[in-house]
Amino acid sequence: MIQASNISHFYGSEQVLFNLSFEVKSGEFLFLSGESGSGKSTLLSILSTLLKPSSGELLLDGKAVESMKDMDYFRQSKIGFVFQFHYLINYLSVYENIALAAMDDKKQNINKILDELGILELSSRYPNEISGGQRQRVAVARALVNEPKIIFADEPTGSLDSKNSTIVYELLQDAQKKGTTVVVASHDMQIQNYATKIIRLKDGQIL
């Protein structure tokens, strides 16, 4: 599902990733671990197409990202994102935030997903009217709505307590069990319990 070959990245003159190569198979749960500054968030951004690598080649679902013609469609249909700070749009309701991400033929899934995640009653509320844990569940719902092939999550539980963290991990594991590839970058070693593959980074290199 993901093939990374010799991925390197620079911020200005500072190199943060050094020739990283690895493969993630379809349906795997990859845990990218490492300390702050190890490069795991940068690597996750590159793997999820949100950042162009300085060099190297990345294949997602068998397609080379660099030469991909319709990146927007690929992102919307094949990839789901969960960020640390949920990044919901504050002037859209919970339902509208998910509808914004949903493809036309997936919009009928919204209420079902909200129901499965236990937040259906929040659908008309705005992000500033719900708790942090509820916002992160909305972010997960938004990532799942298009039934993507890969979900990328960057510190998805960074701002949550342990109870809400477990809920988010279980939601991601449920998605993985249904065949979705899940890639999570986090400090939280609790994810080891859910991961099928772990890549440890230190100073931009795989240990």
Binding site: S48, L50, D72, Y73, F74, R75, Q76, S77, I79, F81, Y87, I89, L100, A101, R142
Partner: peptide
């Protein structure tokens, strides 16, 4: 900009 970044990440053109 953050809002536009989120929209781009969600696949909005």
């Amino acid at each position: 900009k953050e809002e536009f970044g989120i929209m781009r990440a969600l696949g909005k053109s």
